[in-house]
């Protein structure tokens, strides 16, 4: 029997909606588990991405930790897939690219009414935000993109089954959407 393919997933500046849409494949998840095993993913407890066949990344890149995780995935995954609008063009979080980061933080943590003793968090434990939100392909090479906010479960299923079967994934009309 062939070795199971190893799949890692992560969410950077994402909303976990792409992972939820992934889980929307419902009982097909059981069929998928006959074909793949999971490396680092929010659905298990693995802390770091090891050598994997497929890495699936939702969310854009908005802070320093996102950059590190994305590099970890690129280093370890033979095929890296950007899933969802955020990973592909920054998505709705990139609407903050209009704004000055300092004034965003000031408004949320200092001047917003109702804050008691507000201060901008400055513990070194916390990753610093980048001044802009970036799509994944501006940071590392991406092999495939699955568009959608989120992509439908059928699109994710079609993509993965094509890829696992060794074919170039094709979505086609009805499965490609950006909204």
């Amino acid at each position: 029997m062939n070795r199971k393919l190893r799949v890692a997933t992560t969410s950077l500046a994402g909303c976990f909606g792409c992972h939820m849409s992934f889980l929307d494949i419902d009982e097909r998840l059981l069929a998928l588990l006959d074909l793949v095993e999971f490396d680092r993913s929010p659905i298990n407890d693995i802390k770091h991405c090891g050598p994997s066949d497929i890495g699936i990344v939702e969310g854009g890149v908005c802070n320093a930790e996102n950059v590190h995780v994305l590099h970890e995935f690129r280093k370890n995954c033979k095929i890296l897939v950007a899933i969802g609008a955020c990973a592909i063009n920054g998505g709705l979080p990139a609407q903050r690219n209009h704004l000055d980061l300092g004034s965003c933080l000031t408004e949320v943590y200092l001047t917003e009414p109702g804050l008691a003793h507000g201060h901008i968090p400055n513990d070194p434990e916390l990753p610093l935000p980048l001044d802009k939100v970036h799509p994944l392909h501006e940071v590392v090479k991406i092999d495939y993109f699955i568009p959608g906010c989120p992509p439908s479960a059928d699109a994710i299923w079609k993509f993965l089954t094509d890829l696992i079967a060794g074919k170039t994934p094709e979505l086609g009309h009805g499965l490609i959407k950006y909204d």
């Binding site: 063009n89 991406i142 495939y144 906010c149 009309h173 959407k177 950006y178 909204d179």
Partner: peptide, 24 residues
């Protein structure tokens, strides 16, 4: 940013993207 655009689904640019299979 199609996910929050009121024209999504009725947009010619988006529909052409779908038709031409533009993923990103």
């Amino acid at each position: 940013f199609c996910p929050s655009c009121e024209k999504s689904g009725n947009c010619v640019l988006q529909a052409l993207g779908y038709d031409l299979e533009v993923h990103a």
